[in-house]
């Protein structure tokens, strides 16, 4: 009954066995473990099995360690000046020094803190907004849904970075909080749209109707029936939002719209260009922070490849046994 191009026949045979042969259904799963944990461990396994995702996780872990252990790893304080200005790489300063006489390597190590912080916080916040908007918008019908649809589409087509620049320029307070705020404000719409269409498709599924027939209330249907089935999409929109947030933070900092005294990869490049690092030939100062941003962003998209595998029901339902 199935077309080999999509799902192989044997996949069907597995689930369509005559009732008598039921004992051959996977008996080896520990029946004592709570099912939620089985789902989680299987999900983690699915992500890890994906080679790209594994690479991403390793890179991500590297940056996380860098951020956590910055005080231990960095040879100097990132803001300590007084070294030779605009020096090239040497044994004392592996990556050289900035125009203000600070150690570049220490700045790169400390810079990971800002990027990760912005990525995680802005990622979580925009995902939260996306989940709330996406779920409720997917569950309601009628004119309200139309209005939300219009607002989300508006936020999708309005170019995010110019909007961030304008808001940042008005707000003038140039802290990290402001950057996170504008990133969230402009970054939730994509996730909301994806989650909404998933909610809509799930709410039409029979098991949701069946839950209504089981006497479940709306909030329970949303949180216990629909939401757990969107784990992979929520995770994926988190990683997407975090990537966008990291890139946006670096862009705003590069324009000098953040707190330029704070050491982040974006502000490093801001100072590098303003102090004509291009003319002094300090290519490490240019290369290192940007490469870190690119690697961190790549690692997040690589992890996302694995998370995408979760939404493939054949993988999720543990055919890897």
């Amino acid at each position: 009954m199935t077309t080999p191009t999509t799902l192989p026949d044997p996949g069907g045979s597995e689930s369509e066995r005559p009732a008598g042969a039921a004992d051959s259904a996977p008996p080896d799963l520990p029946t004592s473990a709570p099912p939620r944990w089985r789902v989680v461990t299987r999900a983690a396994g699915t992500v890890w099995v994906n080679r790209k995702a594994r690479l991403g996780l390793v890179v991500l872990a590297f940056f996380a360690l860098l951020a956590l252990l910055a005080p231990v790893l960095a040879p100097y304080s990132p803001t300590a000046g007084g070294f030779e200005r605009s020096a090239g790489p040497s044994s004392a300063h592996l990556f050289g020094t900035t125009a203000a006489g600070e150690d570049v390597l220490s700045q790169v190590i400390y810079g990971s803190r800002i990027s990760l912080l912005v990525g995680v916080v802005a990622g979580v916040l925009s995902t939260l907004v996306a989940v709330v908007v996406g779920l409720s918008w997917g569950y309601v019908r009628g004119p309200v849904a139309e209005v939300v649809n219009f607002v989300v589409n508006l936020f999708l087509v309005i170019p995010g970075l110019p909007l961030m620049i304008v808001i940042a320029a008005y707000l003038q307070n140039s802290g990290l909080g402001m950057i996170i705020f504008v990133v969230v404000l402009t970054g939730w719409a994509w996730g909301a749209r994806v989650l909404r269409s998933q909610t809509q498709s799930l709410r039409g599924r029979d098991f949701v109707t069946a839950a209504q027939f089981s006497g479940e209330r709306s909030w329970r249907i949303v949180f216990r029936e629909i939401l757990p089935n969107m784990t992979s999409i929520i995770a994926s929109s988190f990683f997407g939002a975090a990537t966008a947030a990291i890139l946006a933070e670096s862009g705003l900092s590069f324009l000098g719209l953040g707190d330029t005294t704070q050491v982040s990869w974006g502000t490093m490049l801001f100072w590098a260009q303003n102090s004509n690092a291009l003319l002094t030939g300090q290519w490490v100062l240019l290369l290192a922070p940007g490469l870190c941003i690119a690697l961190l962003a790549t690692s997040l998209s690589l992890v996302n490849f694995g998370v995408d595998g979760l939404s493939n029901p054949r993988l999720r339902e543990g055919s890897g046994r």
């Binding site: 862009g251 290519w283 940007g290």
Partner: peptide, 23 residues
């Protein structure tokens, strides 16, 4: 492609400027 897509635009610009423009 997936690596290039993660590059910040301004950084690609800085690198090209540095190598092809100045160096």
């Amino acid at each position: 492609g997936s690596f290039l897509a993660a590059f910040p635009y301004f950084w690609t610009a800085l690198l090209l400027l540095f190598f092809l423009g100045y160096t």
